[in-house]
Nucleic acid binder design. Structure first.
Lengths: 145, 145
DNA sequence: GCCATTTATCTCGCACACGATACAATCGAT
DNA sequence: ATCGATTGTATCGTGTGCGAGATAAATGGC
């Protein structure tokens, strides 16, 4: 078997790593207009889908730990987009709820995904969906080791 | 046209974002053994491919700016893996060179990519290469807007 | 009911990542 | 030769991400 050339282009992880940075750069202008960072944006998307969730449940959805989410959620709280309240039934848990401003932001955020539509110009939507699902499966395979 | 469900699973960017975190977690044990973080590892891979490069050239390869690379390279210098020297011919530039220890690490790092081989178990290598190339093309499309 | 264990969240320290900015070296037009 | 513009790198501030450890609430065995 021939030696594998040790070049960055050969690494799936580097393709993912560098594509992640590219997505961040591409989304930045649209997110700046909303006053959100990318992790804050995906957190809001998760909350727009399902409101009134615990920090832990949100972390499961976003693949993030509480030590990352807690400060992020405090910033969203400072921005007036969410509230953080201890669950009276189980005071260990903190429940995250959207404020009116947080719900209202969903409308203004509607155009954010189109910020990168240029990169998909001319591509078959089914191909994009397939690519997305393959990456998600790879992620799940890595996470369940 | 039907409303697109605003769910994280629908976003290619989130698939990439969460897969990136999964790769980091999967590589961490192997990289801890080398005393490297993931960005430090890809920097070393780039240097193993081509040594004696400027900070800017390295950044082009890694899609990183000098404000990220400079402190990272200083840490690699502190670890004794690289040297940073002003180019006498153009003192604006800093040339990065591997030390003997930096070159020697390449051998110990040989097994790192296999740290995640389990996630690819049973997959066609050609399919993996195709996936990698599609992600790279997507990155390039996003970066050239 | 009591106490060890578990669970959910938080705090802290370190390392990215990047925008904004600073600075010195170089280049270029005159 | 000079000086304004450009280039290459570094510094600073903000916001992730996560490991390690702290804390408080809930649970379970007895």
């Amino acid at each position: 078997m021939a030696d594998v050339p040790l070049d960055l282009d050969a690494f799936v992880c580097f393709a993912i790593y560098s594509a992640n940075g590219a997505f961040n750069r591409a989304y930045k202008p649209a997110l700046d207009a909303l006053g959100l960072t990318y992790p804050q944006y995906v957190t809001m998307v998760a909350l727009w889908t399902q409101d009134d969730v615990t920090v832990g449940a949100l972390g499961d959805r976003l693949f993030l730990e509480s030590n990352t989410l807690t400060p992020l959620l405090k910033r969203l709280e400072s921005a007036g987009l969410v509230t953080r309240r201890r669950d009276p039934a189980d005071e260990r848990q903190v429940r995250i709820q959207l404020t009116d401003a947080g719900r209202a932001l969903k409308v203004r955020a509607k155009g954010v995904p189109q910020a990168i539509s240029g990169a998909f110009a001319g591509a078959d939507p089914d191909d994009i969906a397939r690519l997305r699902d393959e990456i998600s499966r790879l992620r799940d395979a890595l996470n369940t080791r």
